[in-house]
């Protein structure tokens, strides 16, 4: 636990340190606990750490089998006893039960309730954030080449630009809630190397571009990315990997429009019949992920129409219909 961390500066609430000890846990489970504790270490107001020898124990996590078969009166003294796993209720011992295998949010909720600094199951207390916007706006102000921790309600996401991955708890597999949440529900702070390592071992991971893309799609709120205006010709620098993004039917259509030549957002919308707000969201995501070129209007005008010869529209519609691909808005 390092005093004076940046995270302490964003809260007025007092810090609480919890010392934790284990008894009888299989090595794998213990490792899991330690990994989760490593992640929780960086959270505001909650500083759990493994107990050093001779130190008073706040939380003693005891394997359910030990509690069931052992002699509870011989347990080392602790403020709170946690029974890990399902087993017969240990007679005469007051304890809290934690399901096996331990899950990140269960542990966080438990520790939060023990720390007494917040409501059970809620996100660590932070100063209310009155900034407007969403995750997209918050990220726009940050250096995204650095590893970040993003707290959202009871969840923690981490970004790892070095590996091009982000780490997330299973229950946040759908990114829309966090990407649509108001900024006041989010906290972003630098991630530590240790935290990243733990997250990589214990949380699920996905390609980082998926997070950036979804943040922009859900956060742009119909606005074109600066400095693009409705008349600015734009083109694709590279195609987004549509295999890892949350796929929407109009993406291939919009990508194709600007893959070979620059086209203005107004013209894209007109040619495809895709709403300008969806075009704006798409272009924001392309820009946010580094896939977009902004072109010079005159040069673009000269190149416009330099594509392939017109294709047989009817044929493509028939193929789409047969394969169940859904007709594009422009068909």
């Amino acid at each position: 636990m390092r005093p004076g961390r940046q995270t302490r500066m964003i809260t007025d609430a007092p810090d609480t340190t919890l010392t934790i000890a284990f008894l009888g846990l299989p090595a794998r489970d213990r490792q899991l606990f330690e990994s989760f504790l490593g992640i929780l270490e960086g959270r505001v107001n909650l500083h759990p750490r493994i107990c050093k020898p001779g130190e008073p124990v706040d939380v003693l996590v005891v394997d359910a089998d030990v509690l069931a078969t052992g002699t509870p009166q011989r347990l080392p003294p602790a403020r709170t006893l946690v029974c890990y796993g399902d087993g017969p209720s240990p007679g005469g011992v007051e304890c809290v039960t934690l399901a096996r295998p331990v899950r990140f949010w269960d542990l966080q909720t438990l520790l939060a309730s023990l720390s007494g600094t917040q409501e059970q199951g809620s996100k660590p207390v932070a100063k209310p954030d009155t900034r407007p916007g969403r995750l997209y706006d918050l990220l726009s102000d940050r250096d995204r080449s650095a590893a970040l921790t993003i707290d959202f309600r009871e969840f923690t996401l981490m970004t790892d630009p070095g590996r091009n991955r982000y780490y997330f708890p299973t229950r946040l597999v759908d990114l829309e809630p966090i990407c649509r949440a108001p900024a006041s529900e989010l906290q972003i702070r630098p991630a530590t190397a240790a935290g990243l390592g733990n997250a990589a071992r214990t949380l699920q991971s996905g390609p980082l571009v998926r997070l950036w893309w979804e943040a922009a799609i859900s956060g742009s709120q119909g606005k074109l990315p600066a400095p693009v205006t409705i008349e600015t010709p734009v083109s694709l620098r590279r195609w987004p990997d549509l295999g890892v993004l949350r796929f929407r039917d109009h993406y291939p259509l919009l990508c194709a429009q600007i893959a070979r030549r620059p086209v203005s957002p107004a013209a894209i919308s007109q040619r495809t019949n895709v709403a300008i707000s969806d075009v704006a969201a798409f272009l924001s995501a392309c820009m946010f992920c580094g896939y977009l070129n902004i072109e010079d209007a005159r040069a673009a005008h000269a190149r416009d129409g330099a594509g392939r010869k017109p294709a047989d529209k009817g044929l493509f519609s028939r193929i789409r219909r047969r394969l169940g691909l859904g007709s594009t808005a422009a068909n």
Binding site: P252, C255, A259, K313
Partner: peptide, 11 residues
């Protein structure tokens, strides 16, 4: 195929 067709049709 969706991506290819879009590319053929609109690029």
């Amino acid at each position: 195929l969706n991506v290819l067709l879009s590319n053929l049709e609109f690029a």
